[in-house]
């Protein structure tokens, strides 16, 4: 089970700003461990953000994204108390989704 994300969403003047901090190793598959063996690739491949049930952002991630990625974006609309859901899937098929209310 992947670790939880920290999501913050705040609405101001009809625009909602969402800030997401994900917990993920984002291993590139290029690095070697102390014994010289390749560390297998393990990174987020897809990310989807929803406002209530509507997709407001979908992204493809790759191995060039840092460990514990941080993502900030804005979308039009959104009111206090609305739901924002962010979910990701990685190349090993693991996934995680977290939900937050807009403040």
């Amino acid at each position: 089970m992947a670790n939880p994300m920290r999501i913050r969403a705040s609405a101001k003047d009809g625009v909602t700003e969402v800030r997401v901090l994900m917990s993920h190793v984002m291993e590139t598959g290029q690095r070697k461990d102390a014994s010289g063996a390749l560390i297998p690739a393990h990174f987020i491949t897809e990310l989807t953000a929803k406002h209530n049930d509507k997709v407001v952002l979908s992204a493809q991630f790759g191995p060039s994204v840092s460990t514990n990625p941080y993502l900030a974006f804005k979308f039009k609309g959104g009111a206090k108390g609305d739901k924002v859901t962010v979910g990701w899937t990685d190349n090993k098929g693991e996934s995680r989704a977290d939900e937050v209310q807009i403040s």
């Binding site: 939880p4 920290r6 800030r19 901090l21 917990s23 941080y70 900030a72």
Partner: peptide, 14 residues
Amino acid sequence: MIADGNPSELFEME
């Protein structure tokens, strides 16, 4: 720029 998303928070949650 990065202070906004300080990953310490992930360790703090843990």
